[in-house]
């Protein structure tokens, strides 16, 4: 079957099989930031946005994306620049395999919650597992980003 959808702002038509996951289609479209970590919807690595909402592309049937707008890390690199800089400063990337999915969740959170509390952040991001870092450095990077955004607001 043919899937017609918008990928990172561009209209696309892609031949898919009806039982295919969105993750598999996105990788075929060259979005290599979208990766599989667990196969069981537990790790959050495959997080992308569908119509602006963060979803797990490993368990999202590709046909459901028909007519929708899908955003991956490839489509938000500019928006992610500050966050990536703070993550790099903290050494929070380590192996980097979970980073794109994590960044997609953080950016979705910041669009949804303007000034999240620590609890809200932890709840929102709890589905994004990371085995390398123990999460603290990620948290410090987000706090720095929020501070920067706040400062920019006040100027």
């Amino acid at each position: 079957m043919t899937l017609t959808f918008t990928l990172n702002g561009r209209k696309m038509s892609q031949e898919i099989s009806p039982d295919e996951s969105l993750l598999s289609v996105l990788r075929r479209c060259g979005c290599y930031s979208v990766r599989s970590g667990c196969d069981t919807s537990n790790c959050g690595i495959c997080t992308v946005w569908v119509d602006g909402h963060a979803i797990l592309s490993c368990s999202y049937p590709a046909p459901r994306a028909e007519g929708r707008s899908v955003t991956t890390m490839e489509g938000v690199r500019d928006e992610a620049q500050d966050l990536m800089t703070f993550l790099a400063e903290e050494g929070a990337d380590q192996c980097g395999f979970c980073s794109p999915g994590f960044i997609m969740s953080v950016l979705a959170m910041l669009r949804e919650l303007k000034d999240p509390t620590v609890d809200e952040m932890e709840q929102y991001l709890s589905g994004n597992l990371c085995r390398c870092t123990g999460y603290n450095s990620q948290h410090r990077a987000i706090v720095k980003l929020l501070e920067k955004r706040r400062d920019e607001h006040h100027v």
Binding site: C31, Y32, V34, E74, L87, E89, D93
Partner: peptide, 15 residues
């Protein structure tokens, strides 16, 4: 504290 040499490629989802 020096950022990793590959930080932006791995975080940015480069193949």
């Amino acid at each position: 504290a020096v950022p990793k040499t590959d930080a932006f490629s791995i975080m940015g989802g480069a193949p």
